[in-house]
Design a protein around this nucleic acid. Structure first.
Lengths: 115, 115
DNA sequence: TACAGTAACTTACCCAAAGTAAGTCATCGC
DNA sequence: GCGATGACTTACTTTGGGTAAGTTACTGTA
C-alpha cells in the first residue's frame, strides 16, 4: 500500500537536493563523460570544452563526497588519478539519457525559432 | 541509416546546452511546480522554499525565451499572471521523473552515510 | 647535477551570478 | 486619500565560478 513512485507534489526536498547537485555548472557534462568511459583527470579536462582544471577538481570532490564517484591514485610516474562512477553514479544514466533524449527531440524547434 | 538516439559520446553540445539550462539554480524546482499544476507567480514563489520573487521572475523569463513556458496576463485587478508549460516544457516530465526516481532510489544510502 | 617536463592539483585574485531589501504601478475597498 | 494586493524592477551586497600562476613529486635528458 506504499506509494514508492515519485509523488509529483509541487515540491519535493529529495528531488530538489538531487537536481541542485547534478545541475551545478559543469557537473552534467562531467557525469556524461564519466558514463562514456573517460576516467582520467586530464582526459576529463580535455573532453569538456571550457572546463578548467580548478572547476573539475572542485566538482569531482563534490561528487566524491556524495558517493557518486570514486578516486583512485595510480602510483605511476607522474602520478595519475582515475575517477570512476559508483553504482549510485552509474544509475544516473537514466537522468543523462532523459536529458539527452529531450535535447534531441527539441533541438530542431530551438534552431528553427532563432534565424 | 541515421542514428537518432543519443550518441552517448563523451561530449554532446545539445545535451550540454540542455543540462546547463534546466540545471540552473531554482529552475528544476520551478519546472516541477509547473508540471504539478502550480501556475501563478505568487503561488510558484510560495511553493519553492527559499526562492525569491526576483529570481523567479528571472528564471521564468529565461524559460519563456527558450519556449518552455508561456506567460498569460489575466486582466483582473490586481493583475494576475499565469505561467504554463508548452509542449516542449511538458516533455521535460521525463527528465524530472528520472531525477525524482534517482533521488528516491538513493536517498536511503545518502541518509545512512551521514550520521 | 642541474633542468625542463608532466599530472594533478592549490592558492590567489577578480568578476558575474545569486541573494536581500526596497521601490514601482495599477486598482480596489474603506 | 490611504493601505492593501500581485507582479514585477532597481539598487546594492555576497557568493560562486573564471583565469592565471604556483606546488609537489618524480623522470628522462644534457
Amino acid at each position: 500500500m506504499e506509494a514508492m513512485d515519485s509523488d509529483m507534489g509541487p515540491f519535493c526536498p529529495k528531488y530538489h537536493r538531487a537536481v541542485e547537485l547534478i545541475g551545478r555548472r559543469w557537473t552534467g557534462a562531467i557525469l556524461r563523460a564519466l558514463l562514456s568511459g573517460v576516467s582520467r583527470f586530464s582526459a576529463l579536462c580535455e573532453t569538456v570544452p571550457g572546463l578548467s582544471d580548478r572547476m573539475l577538481a572542485e566538482r569531482l570532490k563534490e561528487l566524491e563526497a556524495e558517493g557518486i564517484v570514486t578516486r583512485t591514485v595510480l602510483p605511476e610516474t607522474p602520478v595519475r588519478v582515475e575517477y570512476a562512477l559508483t553504482a549510485k553514479g552509474r544509475d544516473l544514466d537514466s537522468v543523462i539519457g532523459a536529458v539527452s533524449g529531450w535535447a534531441e527531440r527539441w533541438e530542431a524547434v530551438e534552431a528553427a525559432s532563432k534565424p
